[in-house]
Design a binder for these strands. Structure first.
Lengths: 325, 325
DNA sequence: GAATCTGATAGGTAATTCCTATCATGATTG
DNA sequence: CAATCATGATAGGAATTACCTATCAGATTC
């Protein structure tokens, strides 16, 4: 008979099975704590019949008596077990709500930050420290990937936000520019262009130039520069990292072009194994920005992240990076 | 303005703060698992607008975006954190419901069984084993207390059910008789009444009789017997346990009267330190029953417990106990 | 460009929660 | 012992929430 009714109504079984509600659990905990229906109702700020009814509904749903209703209210064994679980469920729910409400500027949970390896090691340590100051509850997972992969992964949802060289080849992302980072010519000490002051782009003519693979934004930029300056971009050798490029230059395999943050961090010392020359007037730079999915919307808090990153660039890398905005 | 509205409506703050519901959490988990609103709605057997609205309500309540709605559905960092907690909350809720539904004959949670020390050690081991066979999920806490305290504690809610000598001095409890347990006369081997077959109650006349203190039902019973038979109930010495009584009898401080289960367990051997004589025709017995609060109602499962206890008495103590019912 | 897919919004129905009023029972007071 | 109070349940109805149907707006596919 009931089976037939179901067929007629086409009502799904999931809806036929009553489930306990969090409110019912809260009412039950209040009753257990006060040992008294009226007092529990007062505590929960509803009337006694409402509370009584909801606790009755809970008992019906669980198919167990939870309470003995005599001269005193006493929990049954089942009631005591349900009380234990109810407390745990309510506590976790409240912790979840509190964590969400506590979140500052929409930052909550674990943020996954993707970063280019040409940038991450030289910029992130200070940025992480600063972010931690601003968002004490922030949890951050940082993953490195070459920019071409990085943007794809961002769009796939693998990262929440990325720090990388711009422009990026998509319109599905919001790009917020942070700063302009100068690039430096780097070569062996005894290279024809080694030594001296700022170098002109035109001086690259006829030189062998090493750079990273095409997965990096730097690759296209340097390839375009070589074409423009009449230099030879070595196709037979590609660096897999900035360190590799520097070592190849030191071994006289050609000259290379490296970002300022890397140079400042890894090369700028009197006993460096390569010579470093800035381009005249800072003519050669790369743009660095923060990128997140357009669908993330306006309340993500990532704009706040970008502000903080600019601040780091401004104060910790003063005179090296040209902050934008 | 809003503060004033609140004052006018006299609505309690607890009601002004929206709380997440378990259904919303279930919808959100389905969305996270399917990555797709329509598919999640199908899975939950509601329409897409319903699911969409409830997830929106959850986001409003938590004051966080949980989902990016773009060309694909991607969880935000906050969303991933809420997902983790939601899974835990739902799992615990389902475990709670399942435990309640799985319960056999209303037995669920941890049952607290109070037992008289004159009974427990000699009857409970077999009863517990049998109960465990019938209720595999049963959790049992067994506590001993003298019967006078035991019944008070039962009424206070400290025990859920008790096993004790009856009658009990209250009408607030349901008493289910289990069996009649014979009592035996016990004395030193060289006591004037030592040796021989069954003893008449009248033979106690003039004898010193030892028994337990007034917290035990046995006390009143033996006191009444002594008055009736013209025996002297020793007031200067009281046993604190059945073992103590037996030892005092062995030391010729008087005779005593002990229950059959104890005798069968602790005395019934050829080299016992006391003589044991049954009363003629089994005339002297005590009644043992199971007792629970009247307010526990009819669906407690304790009647089932009583049946099992009778079964234990019938099969494991055959010829010793006279089962009732 | 039309058709289809996807998620949001609006209006209305159905279901649930809560309130008020009352009932039934037991305990307490005078 | 009658009157009163306290306690939890039940009934009817109002208020609120959950859900459905219809539609909109934007994106994607053919």
């Amino acid at each position: 008979m009931i089976g037939i009714t179901y067929q007629i109504l086409a009502r799904p079984p999931i809806r036929m099975t009553r489930q306990p509600t969090l409110q019912q659990l809260r009412y039950f905990v209040a009753l257990a704590d006060t040992g008294h229906f009226r007092k529990a109702a007062e505590r929960m700020e509803v009337t006694q019949p409402s509370l009584s009814q909801q606790i009755g509904n809970l008992e019906t749903c669980l198919q167990q008596h939870l309470v003995e209703r005599g001269r005193r209210v006493v929990l049954t064994p089942a009631g005591r077990e349900v009380l234990r679980r109810a407390r745990s469920i309510i506590a976790e729910t409240e912790a979840m709500v509190a964590a969400c409400h506590r979140a500052e500027a929409g930052i909550s949970g674990t943020v996954r930050l993707g970063v280019s390896p040409t940038l991450g090691p030289y910029f992130m340590p200070r940025l992480v420290r600063r972010l931690r100051e601003h968002f004490p509850d922030l949890r951050l997972v940082i993953r490195e990937a070459p920019p071409r992969a990085l943007i794809g992964e961002l769009l796939e949802g693998m990262h929440d936000v990325t720090l990388t060289q711009t422009p990026v080849p998509t319109t599905d992302a919001v790009v917020t520019q942070l700063f302009r980072e100068p690039l430096f010519a780097v070569m062996a000490h005894d290279h024809p262009l080694g030594g001296g002051g700022p170098i002109e782009i035109a001086a690259l003519a006829g030189q062998d130039v090493l750079t990273l693979g095409p997965d990096y934004a730097l690759h296209a930029q340097i390839a375009e520069l070589c074409a423009r300056a009449g230099a030879r971009l070595r196709q037979d050798y590609e660096g897999t990292s900035l360190d590799a490029l520097r070592q190849m230059a030191a071994m006289r395999m050609g000259m290379t072009i490296l970002p300022a943050l890397y140079v400042a961090s890894e090369v700028d010392s009197p006993d460096a194994d390569v010579a470093v020359r800035p381009f005249r007037g800072g003519r050669l730079t790369r743009m660095v920005g923060m990128v997140w999915r357009r669908s993330a919307g306006r309340s993500t808090g990532f704009e706040r992240f970008a502000e903080i990153a600019r601040d780091v660039a401004r104060t910790d890398h003063r005179g090296l990076l040209q902050v934008i905005g």
